[in-house]
Design a protein around this nucleic acid. Structure first.
Length: 225
DNA sequence: CTTGAGATGCCCT
DNA sequence: GGGCATCTCAAGA
């Protein structure tokens, strides 16, 4: 996957005068890789989101924690085949699969694999970079920046991602996923959090030692990739 | 810092 | 009606 395969774009503007420095936006082909590859390669990349209101600012940051779910893995929503709920997972890669959990939290996933195969990467944590005041406003309980998006439910609350964004393209006007010159130093793996099935699989990935990853007992079972 | 319990209500396995 | 890829707070070390 060479540089030529990526779209070069600029011009994502934040609220005031500053410009978000983004070199390249990830193309659809990035997401059509295997789910595990996408989960690992998303680490260190940037995610920005803009809600429907046109005056809305871009908010977001660096992806620091992900989980992979695909195929007949019993922990994955795709395990029983397409249903009305999970149909986006089986559609074209590079879209947002959004669902609600525990009646109150929203989860953001990126659809992976080729069309027809069910797969998605759960975006579990961000290091906030842009729109921090707005994130803080949306998450009243959070005090420190590290608490704004240090978990999948918190992340969606901070960004303003809601159920109506299910199926939205990651190359559309709501999402920006791209890379800057950040270099990933070390990746750790652990079992996935909050699931009971297939707990032995190490499909959670995060930047080693980052203060913004979600706190979980699984952190003690983590090892370097 | 850690662990554990309860909240909470949408969406459909 | 049940399941649930979570969060927050309280309490202890």
């Amino acid at each position: 996957m060479g540089k030529s395969a990526r779209q070069r774009e600029t011009g994502v503007t934040s609220s005031s005068s500053s410009r978000i420095t983004l070199g390249t936006r990830l193309p659809e082909s990035f997401y059509s890789q295997s789910t595990e590859q996408v989960a690992r390669r998303l680490l260190g990349r940037c995610l920005f989101f803009k809600s429907d209101a046109s005056q809305e600012e871009w908010v977001g940051g660096r992806i620091i924690e992900t989980e992979a779910y695909w195929g007949d893995d019993p922990a994955s929503h795709s395990s029983c085949g397409p249903t009305p709920r999970n149909s986006v997972m089986f559609g074209s890669p590079g879209r947002a699969y959004v669902y609600r959990i525990y009646g109150m939290y929203t989860m953001l996933n990126f659809v992976t694999e080729s069309e027809g195969r069910g797969g998605a990467v759960l975006i579990r944590a961000l290091e906030p970079l842009e729109g921090i005041p707005m994130m803080r406003e949306r998450r009243r309980v959070a005090r420190a920046p590290r608490e704004l998006a240090s978990g999948p439910g918190k992340l969606c609350q901070a960004l303003g991602v809601e159920m109506r964004h299910n199926g939205e393209s990651l190359l559309g006007r709501h999402f920006w996923v791209g890379e800057d010159d950040f270099k990933v130093r070390s990746i750790s793996v652990s079992p996935r959090i909050g699931i009971q099935r297939a707990r032995e699989r190490e499909l959670r990935f995060f930047l080693t030692g980052h203060e913004g990853i979600s706190r979980a007992p699984e952190n003690r079972q983590a090892r370097l990739l």
